[in-house]
């Protein structure tokens, strides 16, 4: 069956909400410089201010405007989401598809490697690495990606194996098609749904891990990151302004993660025929 993902997404309620939320975050990320009233890095205001008309969410310990930082933080989260999403998907595809297509010893080695890597807790490893190099956003994307591609690669491999055995692929071979043609014209287009799912999952995980690491203090101090803001907030919990730093930031982070989760859920519903049937019964 031919599935149009856009129609599927917009037909599903979760999908609609997820998309709306993602659009909002995207809008904020893109237009933060215009929406923010102050430079997020500018420490020229009074410190520890409560919310006021001047500073909607007050200021922090060095006098930066929290509202401006909140808006600008969206960019960081989305950048991580996109970076991890793209990089992980790429790794999963190349490794998973090549294992399925080449097969034999190579396949077995790759599969055992995946088994080995999947038990390594990515979080701990990154904390360890961060002990030596303070990661900036790109290092972080790289680290998260190379530690979390295994699940995706497994999915891609399984799907490629089944695609490879399709009659349509055999038919293409009987026209004289070589491997390259088959990969480009038959395997990759048919992997797109899986790849999209892998992308959404990786993006969600990327946002979550980045925030988590920053919350633990593992982040370049100069980046404007929601996780880092929450980390700072907790350092001043004895002052009553901390909640203005923590709650809006937490909400923003939740909205972003939920956007991805909802989209992912909607896609899964669209792709899994069993879920599709249930969905229809729900409607009736």
């Amino acid at each position: 069956m031919h599935i149009n993902y856009w129609t599927e997404l917009t037909r599903n309620n979760f999908g609609k909400i997820g998309l709306a939320m993602l659009c909002l975050v995207l809008f904020i990320a893109l237009f933060a410089p215009f929406l923010a009233r102050y430079d997020p890095g500018e420490p020229s205001h009074a410190i520890f201010m409560s919310p006021s008309f001047e500073h909607w969410l007050g200021t922090n310990d060095i006098g930066q405007d929290i509202w401006s930082r909140l808006l600008c933080g969206a960019k960081n989260s989305l950048l991580v989401a996109l970076g991890v999403g793209v990089f992980t998907t790429l790794l999963s595809t190349v490794i998973g598809a090549s294992a399925a297509l080449v097969g034999g010893l190579y396949d077995r080695i790759v599969m055992r490697l995946i088994d080995a890597l999947i038990v390594i807790p990515a979080f701990i490893v990154i904390i360890l690495v961060a002990a030596y190099v303070l990661p900036n956003v790109w290092t972080l994307i790289f680290l998260i990606s190379i530690l979390t591609w295994q699940g995706g690669a497994r999915l891609v491999r399984a799907q490629t194996l089944s695609l490879k055995e399709r009659m349509s692929v055999y038919a293409a071979r009987t026209f004289g098609a070589n491997k390259r043609y088959i990969v480009i014209r038959h395997i990759i287009p048919n992997l797109s749904s899986i790849l999209f799912a892998v992308f959404i999952h990786s993006a969600t995980r990327g946002v979550f891990m980045e925030a988590g690491l920053a919350f633990l203090g593992i982040a370049d101090i100069s980046t404007v990151s929601w996780g880092l803001m929450m980390h700072h907030a907790l350092r001043f919990y004895y002052l009553d302004v901390w909640k203005w730093w923590l709650i809006p930031t937490g909400l923003a982070l939740s909205v972003t993660i939920m956007a991805f989760v909802f989209i992912g859920h909607a896609l899964e519903t669209a792709m899994d025929p069993r879920l599709r049937v249930m969905e229809q019964e729900d409607w009736q």
Binding site: M1, H2, R166, M167, S168, Y170, A171, G176
Partner: peptide
């Protein structure tokens, strides 16, 4: 079997729906 082989020999598959890519 190279391309010229497949120019001379072709096959009609048993199940048409499966042998046609839905894309």
């Amino acid at each position: 079997r190279d391309k010229s082989f497949y120019q001379r020999v072709q096959m009609i598959f048993q199940n048409p729906m499966e042998s046609l890519s839905h894309r």
